[in-house]
Measured scan of single mutants.
Amino acid sequence: MFKRLMMVALLVIAPLSAATAADQTNPYKLMDEAAQKTFDRLKNEQPQIRANPDYLRTIVDQELLPYVQVKYAGALVLGQYYKSATPAQREAYFAAFREYLKQAYGQALAMYHGQTYQIAPEQPLGDKTIVPIRVTIIDPNGRPPVRLDFQWRKNSQTGNWQAYDMIAEGVSMITTKQNEWGTLLRTKGIDGLTAQLKSISQQKITLEEKK
């Protein structure tokens, strides 16, 4: 169930391209415009997507990853294993993690069937560096609404905000991946996880038929 919630949630996290980005210092504006741009692209490019579902990787690479804190999220997933990894191991892992996100997020976007969304009203940021933004996803086919909290983090150097995690039903996506990959990290280390991520990233994206 959580895996499905995570995939549905990713439908609204794909941010804007650099040329049309919203105010990078306001995570609420980023979330709002990102959702609108993403849904528009999914709707307008269905012919290309249906002809070649792996085209979704391109959308992810162009529109999402430049505005997601990939390395920060990847380091959180590694936890204690990050500090013990060599620079070469980290570089290989982050490259594999990025390719994994292209496949995983692309597969999530393949679930698009006309969903709509509501974003919580903007709250004062103050001096906060981590801000959760509640998004409610509404399914046109009558499924119950899904309420999610996207975690946005302020870059201490640039002042810009980027998304790095999502919490559904009190469970963090980062925590879920830590639990899912924990045994592999304990037995085969970061190299074993890197190899698995490379394998997963090679899987073809498949479209979910409308139910």
Rank of each mutant, 00 (worst) to 15 (best):
residue 1 M to K: 01
residue 3 K to I: 04
residue 4 R to C: 12
residue 4 R to N: 06
residue 5 L to D: 01
residue 6 M to F: 11
residue 6 M to G: 01
residue 6 M to W: 06
residue 7 M to G: 02
residue 8 V to F: 13
residue 8 V to T: 06
residue 8 V to Q: 01
residue 8 V to A: 11
residue 9 A to M: 10
residue 10 L to K: 00
residue 11 L to I: 11
residue 11 L to D: 01
residue 13 I to T: 05
residue 14 A to C: 09
residue 14 A to S: 13
residue 14 A to W: 13
residue 14 A to K: 12
residue 17 S to M: 15
residue 18 A to P: 14
residue 19 A to R: 03
residue 20 T to R: 11
residue 20 T to W: 14
residue 21 A to E: 08
residue 21 A to G: 10
residue 22 A to T: 11
residue 22 A to Q: 15
residue 24 Q to H: 12
residue 24 Q to V: 12
residue 24 Q to P: 14
residue 25 T to G: 13
residue 26 N to G: 08
residue 26 N to A: 05
residue 27 P to K: 00
residue 28 Y to E: 13
residue 31 M to K: 01
residue 31 M to C: 01
residue 31 M to V: 01
residue 31 M to N: 05
residue 32 D to M: 07
residue 33 E to L: 04
residue 34 A to G: 07
residue 36 Q to K: 07
residue 37 K to M: 10
residue 40 D to E: 11
residue 40 D to M: 14
residue 42 L to A: 03
residue 43 K to G: 14
residue 44 N to R: 14
residue 45 E to F: 04
residue 45 E to C: 12
residue 45 E to P: 02
residue 45 E to R: 03
residue 47 P to Q: 13
residue 48 Q to N: 13
residue 48 Q to S: 09
residue 48 Q to V: 11
residue 51 A to D: 14
residue 52 N to M: 05
residue 53 P to N: 15
residue 53 P to R: 10
residue 54 D to S: 08
residue 55 Y to K: 11
residue 56 L to H: 07
residue 56 L to W: 07
residue 58 T to S: 11
residue 58 T to W: 06
residue 59 I to L: 09
residue 59 I to W: 01
residue 59 I to S: 06
residue 60 V to F: 04
residue 60 V to I: 11
residue 63 E to Q: 04
residue 64 L to I: 03
residue 67 Y to A: 05
residue 67 Y to N: 03
residue 67 Y to F: 11
residue 67 Y to I: 07
residue 69 Q to T: 14
residue 70 V to R: 03
residue 71 K to I: 01
residue 71 K to E: 02
residue 72 Y to Q: 00
residue 73 A to C: 04
residue 73 A to K: 02
residue 73 A to F: 04
residue 74 G to P: 00
residue 76 L to F: 05
residue 77 V to D: 09
residue 78 L to T: 06
residue 78 L to G: 01
residue 80 Q to A: 11
residue 80 Q to C: 04
residue 81 Y to N: 07
residue 81 Y to A: 15
residue 83 K to I: 09
residue 84 S to K: 08
residue 84 S to H: 11
residue 84 S to M: 14
residue 85 A to K: 02
residue 87 P to R: 07
residue 88 A to S: 12
residue 88 A to D: 13
residue 89 Q to E: 09
residue 91 E to M: 06
residue 93 Y to H: 05
residue 93 Y to F: 10
residue 93 Y to D: 02
residue 93 Y to R: 00
residue 96 A to V: 14
residue 96 A to D: 12
residue 97 F to H: 15
residue 100 Y to R: 01
residue 101 L to S: 15
residue 101 L to Y: 06
residue 102 K to S: 12
residue 102 K to C: 15
residue 103 Q to Y: 04
residue 103 Q to P: 15
residue 103 Q to H: 10
residue 104 A to L: 10
residue 105 Y to C: 03
residue 106 G to Y: 02
residue 106 G to A: 13
residue 106 G to M: 09
residue 106 G to N: 01
residue 108 A to F: 04
residue 108 A to E: 04
residue 108 A to Q: 05
residue 108 A to V: 13
residue 110 A to S: 13
residue 110 A to T: 09
residue 111 M to V: 13
residue 112 Y to F: 05
residue 112 Y to S: 06
residue 113 H to P: 05
residue 113 H to K: 12
residue 114 G to L: 06
residue 114 G to F: 12
residue 114 G to N: 10
residue 114 G to R: 06
residue 115 Q to H: 06
residue 115 Q to E: 08
residue 116 T to R: 15
residue 117 Y to S: 07
residue 117 Y to I: 09
residue 117 Y to N: 08
residue 118 Q to D: 07
residue 119 I to S: 08
residue 119 I to K: 08
residue 119 I to P: 08
residue 120 A to K: 14
residue 121 P to Q: 08
residue 121 P to E: 06
residue 121 P to C: 09
residue 122 E to C: 12
residue 122 E to V: 10
residue 123 Q to A: 14
residue 124 P to L: 10
residue 125 L to S: 08
residue 125 L to Y: 09
residue 126 G to E: 11
residue 126 G to D: 11
residue 126 G to P: 06
residue 126 G to V: 07
residue 127 D to Q: 05
residue 127 D to T: 10
residue 128 K to Y: 10
residue 129 T to C: 07
residue 129 T to E: 07
residue 129 T to H: 08
residue 130 I to E: 00
residue 130 I to S: 03
residue 130 I to G: 01
residue 130 I to Y: 06
residue 130 I to R: 01
residue 131 V to F: 06
residue 132 P to F: 05
residue 133 I to M: 09
residue 133 I to H: 01
residue 135 V to A: 04
residue 135 V to H: 01
residue 135 V to Q: 03
residue 136 T to R: 13
residue 137 I to Y: 14
residue 137 I to S: 12
residue 138 I to N: 09
residue 138 I to Q: 12
residue 140 P to I: 13
residue 140 P to E: 15
residue 140 P to Q: 13
residue 140 P to C: 15
residue 141 N to R: 09
residue 141 N to F: 08
residue 142 G to E: 05
residue 142 G to I: 07
residue 142 G to Y: 14
residue 142 G to F: 10
residue 143 R to P: 05
residue 144 P to G: 08
residue 144 P to T: 06
residue 144 P to C: 04
residue 145 P to Y: 04
residue 145 P to H: 07
residue 146 V to E: 03
residue 146 V to Q: 04
residue 147 R to I: 03
residue 147 R to D: 02
residue 147 R to A: 02
residue 149 D to N: 05
residue 149 D to Q: 03
residue 150 F to L: 04
residue 151 Q to Y: 11
residue 151 Q to N: 06
residue 153 R to Q: 01
residue 153 R to A: 00
residue 153 R to G: 01
residue 154 K to A: 14
residue 155 N to D: 02
residue 155 N to Y: 01
residue 158 T to N: 05
residue 158 T to C: 09
residue 160 N to V: 11
residue 160 N to F: 11
residue 161 W to L: 03
residue 161 W to C: 05
residue 162 Q to V: 03
residue 162 Q to G: 06
residue 163 A to Q: 15
residue 164 Y to P: 03
residue 164 Y to D: 01
residue 164 Y to V: 05
residue 166 M to W: 04
residue 166 M to E: 01
residue 166 M to P: 01
residue 167 I to W: 07
residue 168 A to N: 00
residue 168 A to G: 08
residue 168 A to H: 01
residue 169 E to T: 05
residue 170 G to S: 02
residue 170 G to L: 01
residue 170 G to C: 03
residue 171 V to Y: 03
residue 171 V to R: 00
residue 172 S to Q: 00
residue 173 M to Y: 05
residue 173 M to S: 00
residue 174 I to M: 15
residue 174 I to F: 08
residue 174 I to C: 15
residue 174 I to H: 06
residue 175 T to V: 14
residue 175 T to R: 05
residue 176 T to A: 03
residue 176 T to L: 01
residue 178 Q to F: 01
residue 179 N to C: 05
residue 180 E to D: 04
residue 181 W to M: 15
residue 181 W to P: 00
residue 183 T to G: 09
residue 184 L to C: 12
residue 185 L to W: 03
residue 186 R to S: 02
residue 188 K to L: 08
residue 189 G to N: 06
residue 190 I to Q: 07
residue 191 D to A: 08
residue 192 G to S: 12
residue 192 G to K: 10
residue 192 G to Y: 09
residue 193 L to S: 11
residue 193 L to M: 10
residue 194 T to V: 05
residue 196 Q to P: 05
residue 197 L to I: 15
residue 197 L to N: 13
residue 199 S to R: 11
residue 199 S to D: 10
residue 199 S to M: 15
residue 200 I to R: 05
residue 200 I to C: 13
residue 200 I to G: 12
residue 200 I to T: 13
residue 202 Q to C: 12
residue 202 Q to S: 13
residue 202 Q to N: 06
residue 203 Q to R: 09
residue 203 Q to D: 12
residue 204 K to A: 13
residue 204 K to W: 07
residue 206 T to S: 10
residue 206 T to Q: 08
residue 206 T to R: 12
residue 207 L to R: 12
residue 208 E to G: 13
residue 209 E to A: 14
residue 210 K to E: 12
residue 211 K to A: 11
residue 211 K to E: 09
residue 211 K to H: 13
residue 211 K to L: 08
